[in-house]
Write a protein that binds this DNA or RNA. Structure first.
Lengths: 222, 222
DNA sequence: TTCATTAGACCGACCGTCGGTCTAATGAAA
DNA sequence: TTTCATTAGACCGACGGTCGGTCTAATGAA
């Protein structure tokens, strides 16, 4: 049976299916045929919209990141917000994205999303760095931050957080992870020259996300 | 014509060829057949030594990292060396490895070594972190370093340097790169709580590697 | 109102390539 | 001579991607 749809709707259907499958099974283990089956279209249709499987990944990553970047931009543009508050809101806005793919990941210990992960990281760095740099510079002007290299500091912090806190790449134990988060907050404060404790909100922000799936300590009631 | 060789010799031939091809064309774009042709063996021989293409990558990465790790271990074990000097020597020892693959990379802007790059990074972190952590702790005891989180700091520094300074992932301009290296040194000093300028040797160490291919400023004479 | 023309969404058989398997041949060691 | 680790390459199924063509709805001249 033949079903015709507006261009953008079809395109988004493909992107939705691809994003789900990429996230659940990894990019390389997701076949084009699996995407076709999920959407309910034929090969030709797929290649009518995209030139290659990889182009779909690019589009998925792009769409995935755009929303967070747009929010970041609008937050950074607010004129009467202090720099630390902007930073907080921007980081929170990013989290909603990664929260979407929370609980997915079928093939558990799989670290085979390397390709997509790297693309996502690179894109995040390149889009978010200029925005956050401006925020840090504002913070320096306001006197609450202090570093001669705001841009490079942000880059390093983004790279490390995205990599070290990604489940599936390293298989950290939850107590290790706790230690890492605490240390990361300390390093953020140190490198940005902020007051000790001023980034404590990061603790509450990062903790519930990564610490819940423990496997131990279940059955508190009873 | 049939050529029989000792097990390890054959195995290393395969690893040599694979390493070269992976480095030149990227993992995914290197076919098993290309490796066979390079070594001059048949499919059966290849799969007699390795269970899969991916297993070869693991072995290549492992071998690649082992030499650096062993050197690091022996340097770290020297009893009458100060911590900063150990750090210096260990980092220098790592550099010889990456220098090997310098000048290779055929398909230039290719960032498609994501899988191998990630595996190499993870392995580096996991093997080098405990060694370097001990060195930092020694430095803290000696009074020249100061941080409550030596292990996590080292991890962050390793991740960032490996990622941000990898050619082919980001396409930094050489003036950007210079700025990044300077900033990185500053951040190393800051996060390790070392004296300003004490890591200046890193500048000379990282610079000639990445800065030589400029294209500008040629012809100083005349 | 009619209907030939056109644009482009859609289809699925088909292709070349790839990683990986299988069985037979070989030859050094016992 | 027997053994068996090693080598060989024909073969396989799955994959990403191509291609010739169909179907539908909008267009616009007669």
């Amino acid at each position: 049976m033949r079903i015709s749809k507006p261009h953008d709707e079809r395109r988004n259907e493909i992107l939705d299916a691809a994003e789900m499958l990429f996230t659940m099974k990894g990019y390389s283990k997701t076949t084009v045929n699996a995407i076709l089956k999920e959407v309910g279209i034929a090969k030709g249709t797929f290649y009518h919209y995209f030139q290659s499987k990889e182009e779909v990944m690019d589009a998925v990553v792009q769409r995935f990141i755009d929303s967070g970047v747009n929010m970041a931009k609008s937050i950074a543009a607010k004129p009467d917000l202090k720099a630390p508050e902007k930073l907080f809101q921007i980081l929170m806005a990013q989290r909603t994205d990664s929260a979407r793919k929370e609980g997915m990941i079928e093939e558990l210990h799989e670290a085979n999303n390397a390709e997509m992960h790297q693309k996502s990281l690179v894109e995040t760095i390149q889009q978010l760095t200029p925005i956050l740099t401006k925020v840090i510079e504002q913070g320096i002007a306001e006197g609450c931050f202090s570093t001669p290299y705001p841009k490079e500091t942000i880059e390093i912090l983004l790279v490390s957080s995205q990599f070290l806190f990604d489940e599936g790449i390293f298989g950290w134990q939850s107590d290790e992870l706790l230690q890492k988060v605490v240390a990361f907050v300390y390093i953020v404060e140190t490198t940005l020259g902020a007051e000790k404790g001023s980034f404590n909100y990061l603790l509450e922000m990062m903790m519930p996300l990564n610490m819940t799936e423990d496997g131990e300590d279940e059955n508190h009631s009873l």
